[in-house]
Design a protein around this nucleic acid. Structure first.
Lengths: 209, 209
DNA sequence: GTCTATATAGGGATAGAC
DNA sequence: GTCTATCCCTATATAGAC
């Protein structure tokens, strides 16, 4: 594997583990057993590394946030949507740990992240609208608007919230994500009609087991 | 006013404005037209300033999170609870901007913040339980548990979420808080029975106007 | 491409005069 | 209580040899 890619990969790993502000370029070089000078041969600065990682994150997230086009959305779509979003956030969780800090240093990142956030809200709203039109959900447009925002908030910050609450001893990765999906589904559930609502509850029980 | 207090006050202001990691002890001294040495006469280090501010935050938050003892809680309690929580977060928003960073450097803060979070969840759950017992709310214990956590997440991160979404031009302070309260109320609303649900909707409309 | 050595800058913090 | 001067350390980044 090329050094450039190894740097990106290791940076991501260390950032996720310890938080981006704590990881210096020297740490990254150390971990890779290369010299700091070598690292700066491949990247102009730390910011470029972050930007590259962000690009990858953005590309993945954009595919995750595709609104299903052809047909009417259903609970499957909601489930898939949440699942992909949570996996993506988990993979690039360093961004979410220090959002303000990272976005505050880089205007381009700020703008792009904002776009992703809007898209998250819009996709959630679109799916809810689809569910309402399909008769699965019962909610007014105002309720859907508020709901979509709440979905975005919980999806965005759930992992942060959990990492603060949890002590060192921690359940596995997949369990954490599953809990997040459950948590967001529980936002949607009260608006669902009988059958779908119970389906969600059942899904959640399996999920949490 | 004593220099020590002026330092605390100015620190809080600068931290809230620019984020704690960006504000150095020199910045604080500059803003106050005192020397860095003088600042270090009053405080051992930057961390002590943060700890003192945190103490004030904690004290205020704990009074906000009192569960009403004597009587059965109602929607008034929920409203008051949210209002106080949001005002408090706003006053010490620098903590929330860089939560991971700040809590990661100070074990004591981490423990205390975690306690506050648990309390937030418990208070929300207690109020919901009260509403359910009073016949105002219709929700299972599992639903209340998930709801209380979602309330805590949205209440904790709403201002962060908004500050990322919003461009520079921004509506006033009270509007931001009101929107947050509305957003959390919309989590609770679907579980309320007819009259109360409409009361919330009406309350929200007034609030947002 | 990779290394060693080093420049530069800034932040945290202290010593000692006043 | 306050100031000036300064020290130390760490992080980013560069220069130039190999």
């Amino acid at each position: 594997m090329k050094t450039r890619d190894r740097i990106l990969q290791t940076s991501l790993q260390l950032f996720n583990e310890c938080g981006e502000p704590r990881i210096t370029t020297n740490h990254i070089a150390d971990e890779l057993d290369i010299s700091p000078g070598n690292l700066y041969y491949h990247f102009r600065n730390k910011d470029e590394i972050i930007s590259l990682l962000f690009q990858r994150f953005e590309r993945q997230m954009e595919t995750a946030l595709q609104v299903p086009e052809r047909r009417v959305p259903d609970m499957e779509d909601m489930w898939l949507y949440l699942h992909l979003v949570f996996e993506n956030i988990w993979e690039y969780r360093f961004l979410y740990r220090d959002l303000d800090n990272i976005l505050g240093r880089n205007k381009k990142l700020r703008i792009h992240f904002r776009r992703i956030l809007e898209r998250k809200i819009n996709t959630a709203a679109a799916i809810c609208k689809g569910l309402a039109e399909a008769g699965i959900m019962d909610a007014t447009p105002e309720e859907i608007a508020a709901l979509a925002q709440n979905i975005a908030v919980v999806a965005t910050y759930w992992l942060n919230f959990q990492s603060i609450r949890a002590s060192a001893a921690q359940s596995g990765e997949s369990g954490k994500l599953a809990l997040g999906v459950y948590q967001v589904l529980s936002l949607v559930a009260p608006f669902l009609k009988g059958e779908a609502r119970q389906l969600v509850q059942q899904l959640s029980r399996e999920y949490l087991a």
